[in-house]
Nucleic acid binder design. Structure first.
Length: 215
DNA sequence: GGCCAGGCACAGC
DNA sequence: GCTGTGCATGGC
């Protein structure tokens, strides 16, 4: 169980902190089946985290079901390591990831990302920084944070369309805030804990999806 | 058939 | 800095 007692005196009277933790508790109660182990992996890739990195890139502006098709194509083509993907011909990679859409852009970006992982001095999953990821073509803030949180298990909160929608509806944000502004809001008001960030994000996504289903 | 889905880069202002 | 636009497929 995570300790939610304020760690700083200044946290004690922060209304925003109370709202944020209340929201987290409410969602946990509402979706008890949702856990921090939310990002789906087949276990086919080496290492397992590579599948999360690839998925994070492929899911950009794309339905997850289409990403799954592309991931299955990679598995069926035995493209299970960063090295294999990095050395795959662009035209072949395009064919493989085609169901995920934007295949011309994404094949180029995916190849470059896998090349970066392959050539990374040290352990990519342990050592890569947000700045290094943001320098890569096609890796923006959300994708970088998804990789850092879900693949690297580091406390970086992911702000996606679901998160913005929920926060706006709850009137916690106006909608005009920048990505990093919202991200810092979460990170300042919650314990710096990757498991909590994953769980909270998973709960937000589940809530938005279930609301969409009901609509 | 139109709209959207777990964004990003880049141009133009 | 902000806004618009291209990228592309599949599901509803």
């Amino acid at each position: 169980m995570v300790n939610f007692y304020p760690t700083q005196v200044s946290d004690f009277c922060s209304k925003e902190t109370m709202i944020m933790i209340h929201l987290y508790r409410q969602l946990r109660k509402q979706y008890p089946h949702v856990s921090h182990k939310w990002w789906p992996t087949s276990g086919e890739f080496k290492p397992v985290q590579l599948e999360i990195v690839i998925g994070a890139l492929l899911t950009q502006n794309t339905n997850w079901k289409n990403v799954e098709k592309a991931l299955k194509n990679l598995i069926d083509s035995n493209m299970l390591s960063a090295d294999a993907v990095a050395n795959c011909h662009t035209s072949k990679l395009q064919r493989i990831i085609r169901p995920a859409g934007f295949y011309r852009q994404k094949s180029k970006r995916l190849g470059a990302l896998c090349e970066f992982i392959t050539n990374y001095g040290g352990n990519f999953y342990k050592d890569v920084t947000r700045e290094q990821l943001l320098e890569l073509n096609g890796i923006g803030r959300e994708t970088a944070d998804s990789i850092l949180l879900y693949a690297c298990n580091k406390p970086y909160f992911v702000i996606d369309a679901y998160t913005r929608r929920l926060l706006k509806r709850e009137e916690i944000i106006t909608g005009k805030e920048k990505y990093d502004e919202i991200k810092e809001m979460f990170e300042k008001k919650l314990p710096k804990n990757a498991k909590v960030y994953k769980h909270f994000h998973a709960l937000i996504v589940e809530n938005e999806k279930s609301m969409a289903r009901r609509a």
